[in-house]
Each structure stands twice: as structure tokens, then as C-alpha cells.
């Protein structure tokens, strides 16, 4: 075995302890051997660094492509209507929709949109990150925007255990997203929910928001009052929303 073979074996970590020991002794005592080793070692490190960098660059490129594609997908509907002649049509349509909304309900939807932010809710974030057991797939469907699937999965779990608050919460959220909140409100009505726990408080909060979306302000106000009296993550938001409702 010539020196290059020895160096490669050492650098690849293929020597046993005894072999490595004698090799290191020779390195320390033979300057010519050491000089040759440093040359091969530098080439070895160059190959390793370049190949690892190339691999990482490939991964980063794929990741960025995926991120850009996802962003492109999200903004696709906006890009479709770029022709100028759509603009007056869109304006007229938007105006008609806004008029319908405000004639029917001057503040409810505005209030709902302002306060309904499940993506920024620390309670939901915490629950979506911890080990979730059977509710996991339903929560994932919710995060993927597949609300009908969430309703389906959570309904099954609620049928087995009516007190499953996490399933109830995501059932309610998915129902709000699909505009079927009245069904969720009905399902929640007979239940006695505990408010001394964050999950119960989340149910009170989103139940109040669902009721506001349905213009049932007085009922919503009862839930908000309960949240105001209870220290927790929704207390200040409930106070602010209650003030807006009273206005």
C-alpha cells in the first residue's frame, strides 16, 4: 500500500485504532510524510466541500422553486384578470356586493373579518403543534384549506365523544370557513363547555364570532362577557369586540 492509499484510508475513517495510532505517530515524526499528507488532505477536503456545497445548492434551488410555485398558485386568480376591460366590470360587481352586504348588515361582517384570525391565534398554534392523536388529520386538512374534510373527520370524532373539545373547535372553525356555522352552533348549543381552560375559551371566542357572522349579536355578547370575566388569551380581544358591538 503506497502513501496515497494510506492517506485516503485515514481520511475516510477506515483505519482501526491501532492503525490510526501508528499513522499519527509517523505524521508527527516524518516531515516529508506530513507534507505529502497535507497535500492529499487538502484535495480530499476540497472534494468534500465542493460536493456538499453542490448538493446543498441543489436542495436550496428545489426548495425555492417550490416556495415560488406556491406563491404563484396563491396569486393566480389575481393575475387572470389583467385585461383592462375587466376593470369597470369588477368595480361594478364589487360595488354591488358591498352594497348588498352593508344594506343587510352595516358592521357584522366587518367586525367578523377584523377579529377572525385563526392563523395568528396562539392557542390554535399551540394545539396544532402538540401531539394531537386522532384529531391530527382533521387539523392538517384545516391547515391545507380542505374544510369539508375537516368537518367530516371531526364529525366522526364528535359522534364518538361529544365532549372532545379540540374536535369541536376545529369543526366550528371549518364550518365558519365553509359558511355552515349555523350547524356548528346547533351542535355546540346543548354542551356545557368549561371556560377555565384555553380550549374552552377558544370555543367561546369562535362561537361568538360565528354568531356575529350570523348577525346574532345578543347571543354573541353573552359569550364575550364570559370571556371578559375570565383571565386568558381572549380576554382583551373579547373586551375590544364587546365595545364595538355596543357601539
Amino acid at each position: 500500500m503506497n502513501n496515497v492509499d494510506l492517506f485516503i484510508k485515514y481520511l475516510s475513517g477506515d483505519m482501526n485504532l491501532d492503525e490510526a495510532g501508528s499513522f499519527e505517530e509517523k505524521l508527527a515524526s516524518d516531515p516529508g510524510f506530513k507534507e505529502q499528507y497535507e497535500e492529499v488532505s487538502a484535495a480530499y477536503n476540497l472534494i468534500r466541500d465542493q460536493l456538499q456545497k453542490r448538493d446543498l445548492d441543489d436542495f436550496t434551488k428545489t426548495l425555492l422553486e417550490v416556495m415560488e410555485q406556491s406563491d404563484g398558485k396563491k396569486s393566480f386568480p389575481r393575475q387572470r384578470f389583467r385585461s383592462w376591460w375587466y376593470v369597470p366590470l369588477l368595480l361594478a360587481g364589487s360595488l354591488a356586493i358591498l352594497l348588498t352586504i352593508f344594506r343587510h348588515n352595516p358592521d357584522g361582517n366587518r367586525m367578523f373579518s377584523r377579529y377572525y384570525q385563526p392563523g395568528e391565534d396562539p392557542v390554535l398554534l399551540a394545539y396544532s403543534q402538540s401531539t394531537r392523536g386522532p384529531t391530527e388529520s382533521g387539523i392538517l386538512y384545516f391547515q391545507l384549506g380542505q374544510y369539508a374534510k375537516t368537518v367530516e373527520v371531526m364529525s366522526e370524532l364528535i359522534a364518538k365523544d361529544t365532549g372532545n373539545q379540540l374536535a369541536l373547535l376545529y369543526y366550528l372553525l371549518a364550518s365558519i370557513e365553509t359558511g355552515m356555522q349555523d350547524l356548528a352552533i346547533e351542535k355546540l348549543a346543548p354542551l356545557d363547555l368549561r371556560i377555565d381552560h384555553q380550549l374552552g375559551q377558544a370555543l367561546y371566542w369562535y362561537r361568538a364570532l360565528a354568531l356575529i357572522k350570523m348577525d346574532r349579536y345578543e347571543e354573541a355578547s353573552q359569550f364575550l362577557l364570559a370571556l371578559i370575566q375570565q383571565e386568558g388569551p381572549y380576554q382583551s380581544k373579547a373586551r375590544s369586540l364587546q365595545k364595538n358591538l355596543l357601539k
Partner: peptide, 24 residues
């Protein structure tokens, strides 16, 4: 393995949570 479908899945499911946290 740089599997773009898996990366897409990870991005779609995890990024909104991270964005929520950072923006918050």
C-alpha cells in the same frame, strides 16, 4: 432526496404557521 412533492407538502402545511408566528 430533494423530493419536490414532499417539500411542497412541508411548505404548504408549515409555512403559514411560521409566517403567523413571525408576523405576530
Amino acid at each position: 432526496d430533494h423530493n419536490s412533492k414532499i417539500l411542497q407538502y412541508v411548505y404548504d402545511t408549515q409555512y403559514p404557521i411560521i409566517e403567523g408566528y413571525i408576523v405576530h
